[in-house]
Design a protein around this nucleic acid. Structure first.
Length: 620
DNA sequence: ATTCGGACGGCC
DNA sequence: GCCGTCCGAATT
């Protein structure tokens, strides 16, 4: 059996005997309780003891203590996938299994049994579902593609139809999306075409609902699974298609060790099964671009449709001088576009920051305003209140450099922008959507919709115009994914506009990120981004491992690294924790070395634990 | 001689 | 992780 333990070197197989009283319920994949080193721990019964286990263990064995549940929640295919994911990310199988198998809720198991798959009718043969890729997937071919979805709001229906086409041919289809909002759209679309054959795996759902949906998949009844990142491990049989939507969204990376990304999990899964893999989105991630360049995946882009549906994007070169003056953030050409749009419907204004004035500086010396207690950035509210965004302290501002007491805006938030747009378009309703108060949709009446990225309301019939504010600033932000993230947010907002609607973007029109949007060719930005990563030897061009831990522990690990390892850092991240970045010409060898070191240190109780992250989703 | 505690190795 | 064992130091 496989012990489920958070202790790295104990998360492996152990041999136990099965007492007669338990034998009827002990089948592969069931959860059991055993006594290990005197205490009761849980684990899974295995089919065979290969892999990281102890196949030739011949010592004394003790008996299983009890069977937790007779439901075989871990099937061999999912276990094999979890093992591979654990290996890829230098983590433990137990950690991955915790993502793959939701916590048990006994009440939800009543009457559970394996069942016949529910049938799914053929969807209308048009769009993505009529593409050769989907036809091949439905026939069981392990085709791979990157799909550039067209703006216009039917992406969820397209994905659902593709899944239904595969399910109608008797194969499973798995769609993974970044968040609850996208999930709601895809789940609704899937239910329209496949009814009860759809299971929804949402990590934020209450435990009972999660487990119920999981069991519906496990039973074999559900043939289409839509879900958030952990759904990538769903025990769906006879897979024909796995797909991920908007794979550049960082929420597709798991927050818990070993931090697997749903795109990578699905890619590994598609290869294992084998089945078709679809990377879908408006924008294209550098990871997807790398696979395209390598010839590993095809591109599906209906260029005529993209051209027909795209907004008419124009860059406004005017640079920000005084953000207090919206006219400077929003040049005349952009205002004119919004004004024209308001004659026929709602317009969308994307503002990257929330709040009123989220970043401020001294009016006199222009040094960034910093908190006297913690040095954090000072934000100013609409009523003039000054708040530290890091420690939340409220003090009257006094510049630590020159002693003056007046603030000027460095960045303007969505709230202030909404206020200014209200004055600019009197009599037009202003609707604000932010992460704290998201608005799902707006109707087709004229309104100025001010939204932060990722929570843009869908407009019935599409927005009549749009503006992407502070775009150049977003491109200038530090962090490996700053530019990629900016472009992704622009594409996702721009996709909500009507075909041909004017869209103003306040950034350099020559920048490939902006060119990609103007031409609606996400590959333009993705190629430039991948080239930058190649130059900097960063993921996905070069795999890296990030180590967080006490300086002494890190030093110990560094001393034992293979000689060809490139070590960046250590860099202090908190008072007690430092961070290292490691690269090597033979990364798999480095990764396996790190895994061995973690296991050895855990077994020998030497030093505190060090966190290892392979290809962390965020890097400065 | 006896008790206590911290370190260490093993866990089926 | 926890448990059991071992060994040295403190206590009687």
């Amino acid at each position: 059996m496989l012990v489920d333990s958070r202790v790295p070197h104990l998360a492996r197989t152990f041999t136990y005997s099965v007492p007669d009283r338990l034998s009827p319920r002990v089948t592969p994949g069931v959860r059991v309780r055993v006594r290990l080193a005197g205490q009761l721990v849980e684990g899974y019964v295995l089919t065979d003891v290969t892999g990281d286990g102890t196949p030739d263990y011949n010592g004394p064995v003790s008996a299983l203590d009890s069977v937790v549940s007779a439901v075989p929640v871990l099937n061999p295919e999912v276990l094999a996938l979890c093992r591979q994911v654990a290996h890829h990310y230098a983590g433990s199988v137990s950690d991955v299994l915790r993502l793959a198998v939701p916590p048990r809720v006994a009440g939800a198991e009543q009457g559970w049994q394996f069942a016949e798959p529910l049938s799914v009718p053929d969807p209308p043969a048009r769009g993505l579902a009529a593409h050769p890729f989907v036809k091949a997937a439905a026939q069981g071919s392990p085709v791979r593609a990157c799909w550039a979805a067209a703006p216009g709001g039917d992406w969820a229906d397209e994905l659902a139809a593709a899944a239904a086409a595969v399910a109608a041919a008797g194969r499973g289809a798995l769609l993974v999306v970044p968040d609850g909002r996208d999930l709601a759209a895809v789940a609704a679309a899937a239910r329209r075409v496949a009814g009860p054959a759809v299971a929804v795996l949402r990590s934020e759902d209450p435990p009972r609902e999660r487990y119920t949906q999981f069991l519906a998949v496990l039973s074999g009844r559900a043939r289409i699974v839509v879900g958030t990142r952990a759904a990538a491990f769903a025990p769906l049989a006879d897979l024909g298609l796995v797909a991920v939507w908007d794979d550049g969204d960082t929420s597709l990376a798991e927050q818990r060790a070993p931090y697997p990304h749903a795109r990578e999990v699905l890619a590994l899964r598609a290869h294992r099964e084998p089945c078709a893999l679809l990377i879908a989105g408006f924008a294209r991630s550098p990871e997807a671009q790398r696979w395209v360049d390598a010839g590993w995946i095809d591109v599906i882009d209906d260029t005529a449709l993209l051209r027909e549906r795209r907004p008419q994007t124009f860059a406004t070169a005017d640079r920000v001088r005084s953000p207090f003056d919206l006219a400077r953030r929003l040049p005349q050409s952009a205002v004119a576009a919004l004004r024209t749009g308001l004659a026929s419907g709602p317009v969308l204004v994307q503002v990257p920051r929330t709040g009123y004035l989220p970043v401020t500086a001294c009016q006199e010396c222009r040094e960034l305003a910093e908190c006297p207690h913690c040095g954090g950035p000072l934000a100013q509210a609409a009523d003039g209140t000054v708040t530290c965004r890091r420690c939340d302290s409220h003090d009257a501002f006094r510049c630590q450099h020159c002693g003056h007491d007046r603030l000027r805006a460095v960045r303007t938030g969505s709230r202030r922008t909404a206020e200014e747009l209200g004055r600019m378009f009197p009599g037009v309703p202003v609707i604000q959507s932010t992460g704290d108060h998201p608005v799902g949709s707006v109707d087709d009446r004229p309104a100025v919709v001010v939204s932060t990225p990722g929570v843009e309301p869908v407009a019935v019939g599409g927005y009549a115009a749009g503006a992407l504010l502070d775009a150049q600033e977003e491109l200038w932000r530090i962090g490996m994914r700053a530019r990629e993230e900016a472009v992704r947010r622009w594409f996702n907002a721009a996709a909500l506009l009507r075909a041909g609607a004017p869209l103003a973007i306040s950034a350099d029109s020559e920048d490939p990120a902006v060119q990609a949007l103007i031409r609606w060719d996400p590959a333009v930005a993705a190629r430039a981004e991948l080239a930058a990563r190649e130059a900097a030897a960063l993921p996905p061009a070069q795999q890296v491992a990030q180590l967080d831990g006490a300086p002494a522990d890190l030093a110990e690990i560094v001393a034992g690294l293979p000689s060809d390892t490139e070590v960046l850092g250590p860099r202090e991240i908190t008072q007690t924790t430092s961070r290292l970045l490691l690269r090597a010409p033979d990364f798999p060898a480095l990764r396996d070395h790190l895994r061995t070191v973690v296991l050895a240190r855990s077994a020998a109780h030497s030093g505190a634990s060090v966190r290892v992250q392979v290809d962390p989703v965020t890097l400065d």
